[in-house]
Design a protein around this nucleic acid. Structure first.
Length: 539
RNA sequence: GGCCCGUUCGUCUAGUGGCCAAGGACGCUGCCCUCUCAAGGCAGAGAUCGCGGGUUCGAAUCCCGCACGGGCUACCA
């Protein structure tokens, strides 16, 4: 786990390029060890002061569960240290915008209970929090870079760039920009601009030396600057690239810790370069391991549900999803898994964030969701289940009068609570209590070791008892029906099984006598009656 | 191709040089409970700690090499 830097190249000492100050200032070969984690004191990478962290999704569609996990860690860190959690929308790619994304992102976060302290819909001192509304800020930063010759304009066409890359590839060279415009005279660019040729701005890469940055999860990571191209920071449409925009914003918004996915590690040195060029302090990076699907490739729609709201719509509880996601890439270091938000906030440390990718195991999520459902107080569960019933349209729900009788539902829920894994299953589990009529399969009514005659007799007796038993409650019912089984000389299971199928048309249901009282005497009698007639009719 | 990151039961993980012939959880199997299903209890199968070298009295833990997997290599983020 803890690793210090693994690569150290000496920085040349003489160079007068303007970009020189972008190279590591010191001969940065001294490893900075990542936390001495034995005791939680000294070197820990975990922040002790209030952090300012942010979630910076692009409005290109649904909020991915991976992003959701990043959001959780952000939120936890902010809550734990008394800092702030910001939401910032990174919409610098105008072509990929998907209408409604921002609302969906907000809804996802709210569903999980991750309120942001600053962001869209919640103004703060560093707004606006949508990048397309901050264009002047990026343009000003770009101008500063241009004025100090740390960046330059480039009018190379996409066609030329593509050709260049293809040629380099064909020659087995690493693809990259050839710095053609780095030293072009200003007049040429002016001329291009007048002709309406699209112009971008590129940052000058130092071209030599190392760039090192600190990652809270992996220790120091060093890159060889000579591999870094003069990359684009301002696009020809006047929008900044992600690289420029997020660096400027993170600085303007006083971000202390940048939590993001693993896939950003290779471009991190670019970000460090921009920080240096602009004279900003570099934040602490926290690169989180990827979330994978069952096939061990990056989790995506292909793997089934991948967006936050889909999990809500599948009937998962926010607390369970929060708990589950928090554990994907982090562990408290003890053998405990079920933890409240408060407990996670209390125990979370960056030191214990994993560095290897995790497979999203939906079976375990399902189990955990069941644990949370079982822990819920009756009224809270009822509140959560009611909307699912109200919106259910499959039979029998399409015929049940609205609003649905909450008192009745509340009385039935104890019967399904420990059988429920997801809220979405509630309508199906409760359906037997709302069906006006059931159509039990003739053969299913007849239990193992029984025949038509014996079953008919048993149900006829049961029918009589159902009429007479007072009160129609689980305990008295159980007493008389057990006695009936004995009197009939059959096993309780045989009797109960027949009755179960007769009154529910299912072989699986909550305990029989609870089911019966939940159904009510009238319905039980009617259904028993119908089952007997079914048995008597020709096979 | 180049650069980067990773590698402990099927999966999530514990492990920070001796307490590890590797612990917990999900899943799986069996048993118990039991009117079915769940829930619960108990038991079990399941990891030569990716491979090979080294350091050390001692390595899952430290070092080196390799293999494999993934990511990046855009005027996308």
């Amino acid at each position: 786990m803890g690793r210090s830097e693994r690569k150290c190249t000496r920085s040349p000492t003489t160079c007068f390029e303007p970009a020189e100050n972008l190279v590591n200032r010191t001969n940065n070969c001294g490893p900075v060890p990542r936390a001495n984690l034995g005791s939680m004191t000294t070197n820990s990478v975990h922040p002790s002061k209030p952090v300012r962290v942010r979630l910076a999704p692009s409005p290109t569609g649904a909020l991915h569960v991976g992003t959701l996990r990043t959001a959780i860690y952000n939120w936890v860190l902010a809550r734990q240290t008394g800092g702030q959690f910001l939401l910032r929308i990174e919409d610098t790619d105008q072509e990929r915008l998907v209408p409604g994304s921002i609302e969906q992102i907000q809804e996802s976060l709210r569903w999980l209970g991750l309120e942001w302290d600053e962001g869209p819909g919640k103004d703060g001192p560093h707004g606006p929090y949508i990048q397309s509304e901050r264009l002047q800020i990026y343009q000003a930063a770009t101008k500063r870079l241009l004025d100090s010759s740390l960046a330059y304009e480039c009018d190379c066409s996409p066609e030329r760039l593509t050709m260049l890359r293809e040629r380099q590839k064909a020659q087995g060279l690493p693809p990259g920009y050839d710095n053609r415009c780095r030293s072009r005279p200003g007049e040429e660019l002016r001329e291009s601009r007048e002709r309406g040729v699209p112009i971008v701005v590129r940052l000058k890469s130092p071209g030599h030396g190392d760039v090192t940055f600190r990652d809270a999860v992996r220790g120091d990571i060093t890159f060889d600057s000579s591999k870094i191209q003069d990359f684009v920071i301002m696009k020809s449409d006047g929008f900044p690239t992600y690289h420029l925009a997020h660096v400027v914003d993170d600085h303007e918004m006083r971000i202390t810790h940048v939590l993001r996915g693993d896939e950003w590690i290779p471009t991190s040195p670019l970000h460090v370069l921009i920080h240096r060029a602009l004279g900003y302090e570099v934040p602490v990076y926290v690169h989180l391991p990827l979330l994978l699907g069952k096939d061990k490739t990056k989790l995506s729609k292909r793997h089934g549900a991948a967006s936050a709201l889909e999990y809500r719509d599948l009937g998962y509880l926010p607390d369970a999803v929060f708990n589950f996601l928090a554990l994907l890439g982090w562990s408290p270091g003890e053998d405990i898994e079920i933890m409240s938000r408060e407990e996670i906030v209390r125990r979370f440390t960056l030191d214990r964030v994993n560095d290897s990718p995790a497979v999203f195991d939906s079976e375990k999520l399902e189990w955990m969701n069941g644990v949370y459902i079982r822990q819920m107080p009756l009224d809270a569960l009822t509140d959560d289940i009611m909307p699912w019933l109200e919106k259910a349209i499959t039979p029998p729900w399409n015929r049940v009068q609205r609003p649905i009788d909450r008192t009745r539902v509340r009385a039935l829920i104890p019967m399904i609570q420990e059988r429920l894994k997801r809220l979405a299953e509630a309508p199906d589990l409760l359906a037997i209590f709302f069906e006006e009529e059931v159509m039990p399969d003739r053969n299913s009514i007849i239990q193992k070791g029984m025949d038509v005659a014996a079953t008919t007799k048993a149900l006829t007796e049961a029918h009589a008892l159902a009429k007479s038993t007072q009160p129609f409650e689980p305990e008295p019912l159980e007493i008389v029906f057990r006695a009936l089984a004995e009197q009939l000389g059959i096993k309780p299971g045989q009797l109960f099984g027949s009755i179960r199928v007769a009154i529910t048309a299912r072989s699986v249901a909550p305990p029989l006598f609870h089911t019966m009282s939940g159904l009510g005497r009238d319905r039980v009698i009617t259904r028993l009656d119908k089952a007997i007639r079914t048995l008597e009719s020709a096979p």
